[in-house]
Design a protein around this nucleic acid. Structure first.
Lengths: 230, 230
DNA sequence: AATATTCAAGTTGTATACAATCCTTAATCA
DNA sequence: TGATTAAGGATTGTATACAACTTGAATATT
């Protein structure tokens, strides 16, 4: 979640790139992540890949089974409500902390993010739109001034986004831009209670739009990560 | 936090043992954890130790600085309120979920835990008392039926316990047994709101009893982990 | 034909060698 | 004397070799 942390290290590069393609739904839940392939693609040793995968697994976006390997995390339908409830609790607490206390800079940033997200979705760039949609929620976490809460919030945001990737086939990625606009409004004006309530409804709306049908998963690591196979 | 996960693996053994001695305040915050010493003590390779330390660092009880090494996590006084607030939010939500829904078995287990904890403290076995005190909170997290919330709760419990280890010199470890007894009562009877309120007060009480003076740190890994130096 | 078994290929788990980095101490210089 | 630099030791970072394990296919068996 702390994107800034290991940005320069080799591990950080692998981590960030994988995090991005997973979040942008280029790698679907269930996709296999073999160490050798990734080491080959990123031109680093397996050691580095292993650390990156381990970190991703601690953040819940990758699932490592001993002696089997790593896949993009999948979620059983019956477990879905747990993750959304956890996210509501954390993100509700986060938005309550910032409501009514936005600086003008933060307000402008949030509005700009909503516009940018909207632009991407309208122009058909779904991957970028998804990314920005998540960044919107990440930003709220960042300005709430509570490190552990922000960290947990981002973890739950990423985790539920993965669930949306698995169970929401509509292109929206779950978040409606209108909703985000309304969230900004209530963060500017509102008392904390009202902001928290709106966030709850927003997240409930995403959860309600999930479709629990079966879909098959297939991906080509080399193609997704845009590397020439030699 | 998931003690059961890697119990059999070498990494799991190192992880659990270190987690225990840290939680039981045998290793104070700031204590250095060098890979070679630990590899020597546990008779495993550095690879295994590294993974265990990495896992501990993701759970916040160990702090790894690049090219420097790992220490038991220390907390700046100004950051302390953040962690306690995060813990109140999570553990408040957890206890609200279980209040009024305890099975008789769970009720008996909780009462037994309070008694055992009390016994240890009265007999002067502070380390075990601390361990049981934390296990009491862990158990509440476990029976709340929400995996991610439980995981985050345990993380915050461990993290704040570390803070207590650093800033509370009284032997109690922060938790008063009376408080735990009252928590059981309200979990049995109470509506969720009341249980949450009592948990808030309990945690606030622990936070209020911290003492932010300086103390020096010195430890001998070999002695603490009870290994003959050959 | 259906089930068991064996073997081979591929992948992860672990140990270790070597490189890079940091910290301490001692020597040098102003 | 004080600050600066240099060298040495110790520790972490990375790559790689080998061991252990899993899986799936081909063969053997009932």
């Amino acid at each position: 979640m702390e994107k800034s942390k290991g940005s320069k290290s080799q591990e950080g590069i692998v981590y960030e790139r994988l995090f991005d393609v997973i979040i942008e739904q280029k790698l679907q839940p269930g996709a296999r992540l073999t160490e050798i392939s990734l080491a080959d693609i990123f031109a680093v040793s397996r050691t580095v890949v292993r650390r990156a995968l381990l970190r991703l697994s601690y953040e819940g976006v990758v699932d490592i089974k001993p002696n089997i390997g790593a896949i993009v995390t999948t979620t059983e339908p019956e477990d879905v409500p747990q993750y959304f409830e956890a996210r509501r609790i954390i993100e509700g607490a986060l938005i309550r902390r910032v409501a009514g206390k936005l600086t003008t800079y933060q307000e402008e940033t949030l509005n700009a993010m909503v516009r940018e997200e909207n632009r991407y979705f309208l122009s058909g760039n779904r991957a970028r739109g998804l990314r920005k949609s998540i960044d919107f929620h990440f930003y709220i976490a960042d300005i709430a001034n509570n490190k552990p809460l922000a960290e947990m919030g981002k973890k739950m945001i990423a985790r539920t986004s993965l669930i949306v990737a698995q169970y929401n086939l509509s292109g929206s990625g779950g978040c409606a831009c209108v909703d985000h606009s309304a969230l900004v409004d209530v963060m500017v004006k509102g008392p904390g209670d009202q902001a928290e309530k709106l966030m709850y409804e927003h997240l409930q709306h995403i959860e309600d739009n999930l479709y629990f049908g079966k879909q098959n998963i297939e991906t080509d690591l080399y193609r997704i990560l845009e590397v020439d196979r030699s």
